[in-house]
Amino acid sequence: MKITITIIVLTLVLSFVSTARAADSNIEQRLTELASSSERSAEHIARNRYRNPAETLSFFGIKPDMAVLEIWPGRGWYTEILAPFLKEQGQLTIAQFRQNDGNLKDDRAIFWARLSATLAARLNEQGAYFGTVHQIELEPPFLQPALAKEQFDLVLSFRNAHIWDESGHLLATLQTLYDVVKPGGVLGLVEHRAATLSDTTSVAVEGYLDESYVIAAAEQAGFKLVERSEINANLLDSKDHPKGVYTLPPTLALGNYNRALYLAIGESDRMTLKFIKSAE
């Protein structure tokens, strides 16, 4: 009798594991399809090899019924994948750059505002593809308008942390994000990774951040690191370029100078970190 019960339990467990694996496989397959969608430009599709969107989003544990917040989507590179993936069962919210109300003076902020306006217009024009995408703003360290706490299953930030750190808002911005994540929810963070010299020191030229520093900041904000991945690593990146990370594609800040070299290196070496907000 005991043997029979054990066999039944084992069969059920194996069936559950098999079903879960199949579901995960289907999710990654769907993400892969969206990453190569005809709705995306050839330039965006070409960057899949460096950004590995299907693998990255799967690593963060995305599911089609989640409430997801994407921080500073820029030109919408990830939004093009996230919005159609979530539109049937879930909900995507994007935290755009601050709108230009005529008071922006900084050239970079004006440029970013233009990117956000262009993306907003595209979301409106291609509603059938994107579905309903909620839009707010992030003016570090605050979301505008302020959101109710604990409403997102997953918050995603791709290569934003170094900008928050430059302005002195890294910790406070992470604390803002912590507040809007549900207990048990995830912060998925990808960032340009500085060269590590030892367990306690690193070299962080423009645009790069030390991985241990980012982890410490997120954990000080309340998150707990549960896993890190080398999905977006690039061993060819020496991280000592004349204009920092902006020397590499897609920016290529040096123009035609050593262009072939920097194209051969590809996009930056990146940390990929999965944090959780304790359910306790």
Results as ranks from 00 to 15, higher is better:
M1T: 12
M1L: 13
I5R: 12
I7M: 12
I7H: 05
I7N: 04
V13T: 14
V13P: 04
V17F: 14
V17D: 02
S18V: 09
T19I: 14
T19R: 13
R21W: 12
A22L: 15
I27W: 04
T32V: 02
T32S: 15
S36W: 12
S37E: 09
S41R: 02
A46R: 14
A46E: 13
A54L: 11
L57M: 11
S58E: 06
F60H: 05
D65I: 00
V68R: 02
L69Y: 03
E70Q: 06
E70L: 01
P73I: 05
G74N: 13
R75P: 00
W77E: 13
Y78S: 12
L82P: 10
P84Q: 05
P84H: 07
F85P: 08
L86A: 01
E88N: 11
T93Q: 00
R98V: 12
D101C: 03
K105P: 00
D106E: 15
A109D: 14
L115D: 09
S116R: 02
A120G: 08
Q126K: 14
G127V: 06
Y129D: 08
Y129H: 11
F130N: 02
T132N: 13
H134M: 07
H134L: 11
H134W: 01
E137S: 11
P141Q: 03
K149R: 12
E150S: 15
L154A: 08
S157K: 05
N160F: 02
D165E: 15
D165C: 03
L170G: 10
L170Q: 09
L170E: 08
L171M: 03
L177G: 09
K182F: 03
G184K: 08
L189E: 08
A195V: 03
T196Y: 00
S198I: 05
G207C: 11
D210N: 08
D210W: 01
D210L: 01
Y213L: 12
V214A: 04
E219F: 11
Q220Y: 01
V226H: 05
N232R: 15
N234P: 09
N234W: 02
Y246F: 15
L248G: 10
L248H: 08
P249A: 08
P250E: 04
T251S: 13
G255A: 06
G255F: 10
L263V: 12
L263I: 06
A264Y: 07
I265L: 08
E267L: 07
S268K: 03
S268A: 15
R270I: 01
M271W: 00
K277V: 12
A279E: 14
E280A: 13
